[in-house]
Design a protein around this nucleic acid. Structure first.
Lengths: 213, 213
DNA sequence: GTCTATATTGGGATAGAC
DNA sequence: GTCTATCCCAATATAGAC
């Protein structure tokens, strides 16, 4: 809006319009069923601009995902850092709360959460590199923290339980509530909070209660 | 193989070849990214045969899904019938065991389970009618059974927990084990068994143990 | 029931003027 | 950095011979 940017506001503005349109259409239709023409049309930019700014459809998809996922994962790492600084003995509940905090705080919009969920719906050729790149470090750090909070637990079993929890998370982010349940503005937040309790019980099954530090 | 079918084995054989090829490619690439040409090529039948036998790409997708999902759901209903005949008071563990039995017994192949999981990855326009049609009755019956096994539990909360469990199931069916875990022949069976325990704990959180009949 | 050939549409990507 | 126009390819679907 200021004078210095008014002359060439186009570049950054165009990129944002493309990203917004791409996000909305990828969420709605998935990667393969979304055309660059549809994205350009919704963004009200020229078709060629999508190639100029992002190079290819796949690169645009990755950029759209990264814009939303990266802040979430950064927040997750920061929340875990703080938690580990505050106490040497962490409870499962506290760890999971840190993990889900970026999804419940900051009022994530439904489209954003759906985009996150949709990653998992794409074919493995697209999904796997994206997941390893965006999510690998976070999953590793949280798995380690959980392992320390559950010292008796087999590592394989722990990673399976983490896997199940992620599955629940995707359900909530992608679909919202159970089939037939009416949607409201905070359906996803409620769902994530309920999931947290569900997963704590799942992680702690068979354990005697551990007193927190 | 017998004489009477040898003359016109073509019809049924062609349909099966198409279904097998479609299943394999839909699993690998998803609906939108799979072409009828690729299916016809892999099946070694003519392109036009796909239209002759199934009418359209969407109808073929639904047929491929139905072939695998319907037996599973029929088995689930039958298992629950038997369980309810055998005892008036059911435990959560017994109900979930019945629910997952068709996935752990009968040696489901990885492609089949991946196909089931992939339903959820498709855009809602394809997913929702399919889920309601194929899965609605099963989900309703099992939710009711779980409600009777957990009499103090709020119905909304119960449906959320069922939702989370389905999310874990999809993770196992679609992806197998956690990222980086090596795959073996029974990865999915192991995963489903572990998921069962995880979900029992999640469903029963906060409850005192209930003695089974 | 199976094939060839084709109608028709839409896709990603790029060249080149401005 | 943006546009028009186009290349080139692939898609679903169908018509019509066999």
């Amino acid at each position: 809006m200021n004078a210095s940017s008014s002359i060439r506001q186009n570049s950054t503005t165009t990129q944002l319009k493309i990203l917004d349109a791409a996000e909305s259409l990828f969420v709605e239709r998935g990667f393969a069923a979304t055309s660059l023409r549809a994205i350009a049309g919704l963004a009200e930019v020229n078709l060629a601009a999508t190639h100029y700014h992002f190079g290819s459809k796949e690169a645009l998809f990755q950029a759209a995902i990264h814009r939303r996922v990266n802040p979430i994962n950064e927040a997750r790492l920061q929340a875990l850092d703080e938690l580990e600084r505050s106490s040497r003995v962490l409870t499962v509940a506290a760890i999971l709360a840190a993990f889900f905090k970026p999804l419940t705080e900051g009022g994530m919009s439904a489209p954003v959460t759906k985009l996150v969920g949709r990653i998992y719906g794409e074919p493995e050729s697209i999904t796997k590199p994206l997941l390893e790149g965006e999510f690998g470090v976070v999953a590793g750090r949280y798995s380690s923290a959980l392992a320390r909070a559950l010292p008796g637990l087999d590592e394989t079993e722990l990673r399976w339980r983490f896997h199940f929890m992620i599955g629940g998370m995707i359900q909530v982010l992608s679909f919202g509530g159970p089939l037939g349940m009416k949607e409201s503005a905070d359906t996803r937040q409620q769902g994530i909070e309920r999931l947290q309790s569900f997963a704590v019980a799942g992680f702690e099954q068979g354990q005697r209660e551990v007193a927190g530090g």
